[in-house]
Design a protein around this nucleic acid. Structure first.
Length: 421
RNA sequence: GCGGGUGUAGCUCAGUUGGUUAGAGCGCCAGUUUGUGGUACUGGAAGUCGCCGGUUCAAUUCCGGUCACUCGCCCCA
């Protein structure tokens, strides 16, 4: 097969079954989010490169090696969005919405990261997310987490996930802790793994969740983040956990949970599953009070989460694709045109009908059966002459002649009379 | 970006210690059933054995490279 006949590495087609699964994930998410007052919105798929490079931190992996960045014909550097939050915040500022707070936004769409593909990790993948922009209250954090939890619950995957929760503290707390970590690990720099020596330069907090055994051994005596939280940061975290407890949302404190992106502060959380190998995070987020200022906006506290549509789709059970209720078939060629007329009238009456157009009649019946159609409408020369059509109930096997003019009404009645699942 | 595994029919996989016509199940098509679906039986189509190169009288099999997928690391949804 020609190389060009394959999709680009890390991308894939969403053939109907997979697309249906993703649609189900996204529509369930939006449905829940709307009950929390979130409103669907969208930003462009590419932005000026600075929209992502400034807030995410130029040294972060996402920006330094994972973005699709290119110059357009005018020489402007543009970047395909690697995540949704920075663009959403940019949209708040661009649209002059920094006064009319709060905003409760929901978004869903493709994201792009140039990474080595794995199961649950694609170069073009899809996320949905919620951003609650304006409140600094711990209740906002709780609402975001609660919304995420309820989405997972209604998707039927919450019991496969564990909520990991941590506080990164405010900017000052985080800064103090960071320096303490650097001081501590610098003494053992020879014992650290190669990765962690690099992290010491770029993102010391990351050493905390290193999987290297040697690194882990050093963690026992390492500074602990909770010890560096300011009183205010601690109060905020307590406020979040108290709210979660009051709503019976289970969580575990994970002092090693660190989010990669620079703009996070205070609450960080991840819903993690062990069913997806190394890509266990299915929905994650936190508070990003510093983001707006990084983008040149005013001080604007905000919390949000993003969830991976592919990862969730992998977790949910097999979905049955809704097919058509009715199959229409012509028993012979003379009835073909009229059968199209019947199909059209059924569709105009609000029913779902497909025409079966190839093969002998037995073949068409087989198709109707395989497609799971509830009724088959059969029209042949004989029926045509009598101005009727046969309606066969595929569940009971019974069939009867119905006047063609009454078909839609009759089938509508028959469908009402049965309990459809 | 780093390390391991895999790549044979539409799908799931056998197999070939290098040797003529590469197999199974499922699926698909046709028939038994010339105006009627679930089962059964019968027959059929379908593979450049991922791609390129090397070794060899001979490569789907061995070797190298490459591409794709996959597992782990990194990072993250």
């Amino acid at each position: 097969m020609m190389k060009q006949m394959q999709p680009v590495r890390g991308t894939s087609d969403l053939i109907p079954e997979e697309k249906a699964r993703q649609n189900h994930v996204i529509s369930t998410a939006l449905n829940v989010a709307e009950r929390y007052g979130f409103r669907d919105m969208a930003t462009p798929i590419f932005e000026f490169t600075e929209v992502f490079s400034r807030p995410l931190g130029a040294s972060s992996d996402v920006v330094s090696k994972e973005t699709y960045t290119f110059e357009d014909r005018g020489g402007t550097s543009l970047t395909l969005r690697p995540e949704g939050t920075a663009a959403a915040m940019r949209a708040v500022i661009s649209n002059g919405l920094t006064q009319a707070l709060p905003h409760r936004w929901f978004y869903a769409g493709p994201m792009f990261r140039y990474e080595r593909p794995q199961k649950g990790r694609m170069r073009q993948f899809h996320q949905f997310g919620c951003e609650l922009i304006g409140p600094h209250s711990a209740l906002a954090d709780a609402e975001i987490i609660g919304c995420g939890a309820q989405i997972l619950e209604e998707l039927g995957v919450l019991d496969k996930c564990v909520l990991h929760l941590n506080s990164l503290g405010d900017t000052q707390s985080r800064q103090n802790f960071r320096e303490a970590l650097i001081t501590y690990f610098s003494r053992f720099s020879d014992d650290l793994s190669e990765d962690s020596r690099r992290r010491l330069e770029t993102n010391p907090l990351r050493i905390l969740d290193s999987k290297d055994d040697g690194d882990r051994a050093l963690l026992d005596d390492a500074p602990r983040l909770p010890d560096y939280l300011s009183d205010e940061a601690r109060r905020h975290f307590d406020g979040v956990t108290a709210a979660l407890d009051a709503a019976s949302i289970g969580w575990t404190h994970d002092p090693l949970l660190v989010r990669g992106l620079d703009y996070y502060a205070h609450t960080a959380f991840e819903f993690v599953t062990d069913a997806l190998g190394a890509q266990g995070t299915v929905l994650g987020g936190g508070r990003y009070d510093g983001l707006s200022e990084t983008l040149g906006g005013p001080v604007l506290p905000a919390v949000g989460f993003a969830a991976g549509v592919e990862r969730l789709a992998l977790l949910i059970e097999q979905l049955h694709l809704p097919g058509s209720d009715i199959a229409v078939l012509a028993a012979d060629e003379t009835a073909e045109a009229a059968s199209f007329g019947i199909a059209q009238s059924l569709r105009h009456a609000g029913l779902s009908a497909v025409q079966l157009m190839s093969g002998a009649m037995g073949k068409k019946m087989k198709q109707a059966h395989k497609m799971g159609c509830r009724f088959v409408v059969i029209l042949g020369a004989d029926e045509l002459a009598r101005d009727v059509a046969i309606v066969k109930d595929m569940q009971t096997g019974t069939q009867s002649d119905i006047a063609r003019a009454l078909l839609s009404d009759a089938i509508t009645q028959m469908m009402k009379g049965t309990i459809s699942e």
